[in-house]
Amino acid sequence: MLRQVSFAVQRGELMALVGESGCGKTLTALAILGLAPRAANVRGDISLAGVGDLQALGERARRRIRGRRVAMIFQEPMSALNPVLSLGRQIGENLRRERRLSRREVRRESRRLLELVAMPDADRRLRCYPHQLSGGQLQRAMIAMALASEPELLLADEPTTALDVTVQAQVIELLLSLRRRLGLTVLLITHDLGVVAQSCDRVVVMYAGQVVEEAPVGELFEQPAHPYTRALLASVPRLDGSRSKAEGIAGRVPVPGDLPSGCVFHPRCDSVIESCRASAPELVVIGSGNDTENGHSSRCFLSKPGAGDPG
């Protein structure tokens, strides 16, 4: 389902993973955590600074990494939180287990965490149950829980998709401020390119289980190299009237058991050429930047190495 997904997230970076539903964004995050379904056979190298290859670790050590260095937040806070435990209990769980704090310290730290995520009325909220909170408050609580173990890397899987726009705006600003204040590294999974443009440093575009383009955010929006990225950008509605009509992408993401030949995107691509049907393109470095921070790469026959935007 995922094929040769490679990317590197730099310390302190906010990296976006974008693509339509079914492109493998969530599975990639779960694979990083070692939480991919048992049926999934994850191979390859997933390394974390200071630890090395996570795949080589035993389950115990892996769990330790999940607890302390990498945390994840989910799209539906209501289903990710336990409905029968108070927020205090759920945040405290991590503090007790991972940081071995005393009861008193747990309480103080939980309150500090809720204040950190700007939860109104933090003290009282600790005694609340999930159903007593609004969608935005639940997402804040989940972020507080994730931060309890003081992770370096936060995997955020569509954290704002289920929220109203004004609340989505607040959660995005919260993530940005946490990154600034705590030096957090964030991998943001989203399908909203507006959110990406407003918050991220680098972008990885996925399609049908592959990385099809990776670039710094400015370059991706200005000179998208892969036709899929261009089509995604053309689908985004703009409020300023700078374009008359948003265009969609015909067809749908292929299912893993039934992938097209050659380039997986060719049946939906508007600039398809003969070779696209026959063979699969490699991810090649294009443009000038070559290092991992400024590099721009694309998986398309039309993206010439070092040639920049093909059209």
């Binding site: 726009v165 909203d192 443009a197 407003q198 918050s199 929006f221």
Partner: peptide, 11 residues
């Protein structure tokens, strides 16, 4: 509501 819609332009 309008301000909350993220503009798809990193600049």
């Amino acid at each position: 509501l309008l301000a909350a819609v993220p503009v798809p332009d990193p600049k």
